[in-house]
Write a protein that binds this DNA or RNA. Structure first.
Length: 309
DNA sequence: GAGCCACCACACTTAAAATT
DNA sequence: AATTTTAAGTGTGGTGGCTC
């Protein structure tokens, strides 16, 4: 079984290695990739086409190759390893993630993606509703979640985005011919699926509901939207006990990012320090900065208003 | 202006129904 | 005939409207 990441890497390598004029057809690329990976990738043609488009885009809009040092993208001399901001620890200017096994993934990915966007300053800014539909991203349904052992036996990975889990699950279903021939929406569970779904037969619509029991966020401190909504109500019933700013527990990633010793600090302090970084790095492209702030539950949009941007 | 809240989009699947 | 939409379900992010 091959992941989208591997396919994307394969496409990139293929385009790098071969004469671009040769790889002019989608089928050609798919075939070369199939030969290379020894797999049938016909069902991945759409994804491969997207990757090709991404890689062959004109330079001013082309996505940057995944940078290693995501805090060094702006090439601001003050954020090189020699000249980092005195207020921040060295890694604040230059942080390296070789792999992203946890919630750190989000920040790194988002920062990488946004930095690429910010770097292309010639691209006219568009108001959000006019722009293309949002696709991909590291949050939402693409957030990496941990997989229960039962489900892991099927998808083969301990942690995957929900979308990837569904994909792998369908691959497993097709591979083992577990669809009801008379109604392909119905799934006949084999032993492994029976452990996961706790039923002999289910359908594709109920599948996600059943899957939810086996998918948990990697960062347990982040609550589901419904839980959060519920919590707001709970808090509203008990609020007023302690007026004034209260220290909050920040994530490990944010503590590391800010270089604080502990994980407890005022939310406003955390916001201010992140904002200082944004300004120092000339990241005032709010549409991009918002994503970064979201990862830390910080409302950059409102911060920007406060900062007069 | 700040905070809260509701709504929508996002990916993924198959097949039937609706539309072009 | 070909294409598009719709159906269910998941959690998070983006946005706009409303209230204080």
């Amino acid at each position: 079984m091959v992941s989208d990441q591997e396919i994307a890497r394969g496409v990139e390598n293929l385009l790098r290695q071969s004469d671009p004029s040769v790889a002019t057809t989608l089928n050609g690329v798919v075939q070369q990739l199939e030969a290379k990976l020894g797999l049938d990738l016909s069902h991945k043609a759409g994804f491969i086409r997207d990757q090709i488009n991404l890689l062959l885009r004109p330079p001013q809009t082309q996505a940057q190759p995944p940078p290693k040092d995501h805090f060094n993208l702006q090439h601001h001399p003050q954020f090189t390893s020699h000249h980092h901001h005195p207020q921040f620890p060295p890694h604040f200017a230059l942080q390296h993630h070789s792999q992203f096994p946890s919630h750190e993934l989000n920040f790194s990915e988002v920062f990488t993606q946004n930095a690429a966007t910010i770097a292309t300053t010639e691209v006219p800014k568009e108001s959000a509703p006019v722009g293309p539909k949002r696709r991909g991203g590291s949050g939402g349904l693409n957030k990496v979640c941990s997989v229960s052992p039962a489900l892991q036996a099927i998808v083969g990975e301990p942690a995957l985005p929900r979308t990837e889990i569904v994909k792998q699950l369908w691959a497993y279903i097709r591979k083992n011919s577990l669809q009801d021939p008379s109604n392909k929406r119905k799934i006949i569970c084999d032993d492994a699926l029976r452990v996961v779904f706790e039923t002999d037969c289910t359908d594709m619509f109920k599948m996600n509901k059943l899957l939810a029991k086996h998918i948990t966020p990697l960062d347990p401190s982040k609550e589901s939207s419904q839980t959060r909504k519920g919590k707001v109500k709970v808090e509203s019933t008990t609020e007023g006990v302690e007026p004034g700013p209260k220290p909050v527990i920040i994530s490990e990633a944010l503590a590391k990012f800010l270089g604080t010793g502990g994980r407890e600090m005022l939310a406003t302090e955390a916001e201010n320090r992140v904002w200082e970084y944004i300004k120092a790095n000339h990241l005032e492209d709010i549409s991009s900065a918002v994503n970064i702030g979201k990862d830390y539950n910080i409302n950059i949009r409102k911060l920007s208003k406060r900062a007069g941007l």
